[in-house]
């Protein structure tokens, strides 16, 4: 990075960039969550099932996020791993109203955690227990229990209930992720 870039960063004009991977089962609300963070003029009014992936950029208070919004459909889930290597954080979206497929989500999470690229990396994982407005939704505590998150000890994680349609809970979660990533980045720059 050039001198001007560092200067700009020091002055807080240009934010640091991070890559996050957005994963989760199909119809859990990944693209809708990302859509919420986009500036109003770029918002999509209609969200269709993603095929493959989409790249979206948005900013939180301290960081510039590049989000890889992956497709959750069964036949594309094996493609997630192609992007594990370069990601700094993961957002895992759970449909809290879909108790039936919670075990499938758990399976996918376990596979993700066991993957060679991620196993030994201490990367933060943010869980959204999405669709909390739905009548049959379960609480975030119940959700973390069903996903077996209590056994996840080697990575920082956080779960928050959200409603992507209204935006409730989304900023809270991203703020947590921002703090975590900032820590990581600082540690990295100190090491240098």
């Amino acid at each position: 990075m050039g001198f001007f870039d560092s200067l700009a960063q020091w002055l807080g004009v240009k934010k640091k960039e991070v890559n996050v991977l957005v994963v989760g089962l199909d119809n859990s609300g990944k693209s809708t969550i990302i859509n919420h963070f986009k500036p109003p003029e770029l918002k999509n009014h209609e969200i269709v099932p993603t095929v493959g992936f989409n790249v979206e950029k948005f900013k939180s208070k301290a960081l510039a996020f590049t989000a890889l919004d992956m497709s959750g459909q069964g036949r594309y889930r094996n493609l997630w791993e192609q992007y594990y290597k370069e990601c700094d954080g993961i957002i895992f979206v759970i449909d809290s109203s879909d108790k039936l497929r919670m075990v499938v989500a758990k399976d996918e999470l376990d596979l993700l955690l066991q993957h060679a690229e991620l196993k030994d990396k201490r990367i933060p994982i943010l869980f959204f227990a999405n669709k909390m407005d739905a009548r049959e939704s379960v609480s975030s505590v119940k959700c973390s229990h069903l996903m077996g998150l209590e056994t996840l000890r080697d990575k920082p994680w956080h779960i928050c209930a959200s409603n992507a349609l209204t935006g409730d809970g989304l900023h809270e979660g991203v703020d947590w992720l921002t703090d975590q990533l900032k820590d990581v980045l600082e540690k990295k720059s100190r090491k240098k």
């Binding site: 993603t50 493959g52 493609l79 192609q82």
Partner: peptide
């Protein structure tokens, strides 16, 4: 097929 959505966008 992975690029489908990106191209559609």
């Amino acid at each position: 097929i992975i690029v489908t959505s990106s191209l559609m966008k």
